[in-house]
Nucleic acid binder design. Structure first.
Lengths: 210, 210
DNA sequence: AGACTATCTGAACGATCGGTCGTTCAGATA
DNA sequence: TATCTGAACGACCGATCGTTCAGATAGTCT
């Protein structure tokens, strides 16, 4: 492949469009997202979209993929820098809360907005969302299993159930911080998981006290 | 007040419209809800709405109130039949899960759909949603405090934090049951809260073992 | 019977939706 | 230089959105 300035420009456009689309979708949802408003916010023409995507659904699918990559970079990768075991599990939870607190996405969480929107809308977009959610929970579960294998969590722990807990307590921080008390929401989300992990950990000193 | 057949008919219309609107909003959200589709599903004309509500927002506000009443009847009232304390707290959680599992609303949970939609949309509707959410959490908190006062929960328990836990673990059952595994989601939501309450209760035999 | 009122309808409105059209322009190719 | 291609544009399409309005229907009151 030789360097083609045209394709390079197109790729940059796609990137900025997708970034903006994920941000907007975190507020309005993927269906609530309107091509006209999206174009206006970026400062391009609406018809320009169709040089990159056949229709709105194609853009939605790419937006999901883009959001998954963003999630990986902001939450998964930083967590992998923590030592394996219970500390990595808690680092994952903290990275997620930081992602929310720093308002990386204007709507808080792309996946929360999109799950609530598509759980009753069959189609290709829903399928891709399901896949992303499944991979995410499987990843949490694998960290739990690793922590058990390392002897940093009780043997009796059900990995799927603890993964459900961590996911639920992290996700709930979004609406709580936006609709009620922001400081309290993040404090509760953090402390709940922390105390839960400490309670299940034979060596609680691996984790901060509070 | 004399009996007026017209007003009676109007009230019945309002009721069926609101019931349908809450159901539809649990799927599409309160903004995603379209008057045209709503009218078509009920079998009335679109313009008939405006005999009952000035505009769409007025209908949205009444829909929130209606959903709150439904929530009270289906979840709060049944829980109050359980003996005060930790058993009532768990009964509340179970009533909620039953409400979801029985698919009373086609979208699963009106408040989940609506929270994700309005956390970034200031206005009267958001204000009313915030109020409803606040009242709900305050109610859970009051049950926690009651259980502590009755000596059925450890003194050290932070009522606000435990309320956050119960709310988060219940709410998360909706997208999990719809997008991943329904049976597992409800099982996790139930067992997590159950084990948590048993762990905090000096007399665990008040609660079922599993 | 006639005046009045609440409910509901059908037709129409301006705005916006996703999407298509032909066209323009920059950059690559030969 | 001549030709081709990818990106982006403005104008426009039919459909649907929330909303308005004049009028029909039906139940109440004098």
């Amino acid at each position: 492949m030789t360097q083609d300035g045209r394709r390079l420009r197109g790729q940059r456009s796609r990137e900025t469009i997708l970034a903006q689309a994920v941000g907007l979708a975190s507020v309005e949802g993927l269906d609530g997202l309107s091509l006209g408003r999206l174009a206006a916010e970026i400062g391009i023409s609406k018809s320009g979209f169709f040089a990159h995507w056949r229709d709105k659904q194609e853009l939605q699918l790419d937006a999901v993929d883009w959001a998954v990559r963003q999630w990986r970079e902001h939450i998964v990768v930083p967590a992998l820098h923590a030592p394996a075991g219970v500390r990595r599990l808690f680092a994952l939870h903290q990275a997620r809360l930081r992602f929310y607190a720093e308002r990386v996405l204007p709507g808080g969480c792309f996946f929360l907005a999109v799950q609530a929107e598509f759980d009753d809308h069959p189609g290709a977009v829903r399928t891709r969302i399901v896949q992303a959610l499944h991979n995410w929970e499987a990843f949490i579960r694998s960290l739990v299993e690793e922590a058990i294998a390392l002897g940093e969590l009780d043997q009796g722990v059900d990995p799927a159930q603890l993964a459900y807990e961590i996911e639920a307590l992290g996700m709930a921080a979004v609406p709580h911080s936006r609709l009620l008390d922001e400081r309290l929401a993040f404090a509760h989300a953090r402390r709940t998981v922390l105390q839960r992990l400490r309670g299940l950990c034979p060596n609680p000193s691996l984790l901060p006290e509070d």
